[in-house]
Simulated assay, not measured.
Amino acid sequence: MALVLLAAILKLGSPLGLMNLPIFVLYLTYFQIKPEERAIEKRFGEEYNRYKAKVRRWL
């Protein structure tokens, strides 16, 4: 999603959008990704921890 936003920002030539992209990434990480990871870890336990050790968060 961040790459799609970056492409749109570059296509539109929006410097304000470029400045706000890191804020979006931080917001998404702390309010969407981390809570989801906690919920998945609670549900799948050690199996998820092994998976998380092999796979990066942002591909």
Rank of each mutant, 00 (worst) to 15 (best):
Y48I: 04
V55A: 04
E37K: 08
L18R: 04
R43S: 11
I9M: 04
L16H: 01
L21T: 08
F31H: 14
R50S: 03
Y27K: 09
L18N: 04
N20T: 09
L59S: 10
Q32F: 11
L28I: 08
K34D: 04
S14N: 15
Q32P: 00
R38G: 00
W58K: 04
M1Q: 10
A39T: 01
V25F: 03
Q32Y: 11
Y30C: 04
V25K: 04
A2N: 08
A2P: 03
L18M: 14
M19I: 15
L59D: 07
L21R: 09
F44Y: 11
I23D: 13
L26N: 12
M1G: 14
R43M: 12
L26Y: 13
W58Y: 15
N20E: 10
G13L: 06
E37L: 11
Y51V: 06
L26M: 15
L3D: 14
L6I: 02
A7V: 11
W58H: 07
R57F: 00
I40C: 05
T29R: 15
E37D: 14
Y27H: 11
A7F: 09
S14V: 02
L21F: 08
E47S: 09
K54F: 12
L3H: 10
L3M: 08
Q32L: 12
V25P: 00
L3E: 15
K34F: 08
L5R: 14
P35A: 08
K34N: 06
G45F: 06
L3Q: 13
R57N: 01
P35H: 07
L18Y: 03
L10T: 07
L12P: 00
L6H: 06
R57T: 11
K52Q: 09
V4T: 14
L5F: 08
L59W: 10
E46D: 10
F24L: 15
R50W: 00
L18G: 09
E47A: 12
M19F: 13
L59M: 09
V25C: 07
L3N: 12
L3R: 12
N20A: 11
G45C: 05
R43Q: 14
A39Y: 00
N49A: 11
E41Y: 01
F31Q: 14
Y27F: 13
F24V: 15
L5D: 03
I9N: 06
L10N: 08
A8N: 07
A8E: 10
E37C: 05
T29E: 15
P15K: 10
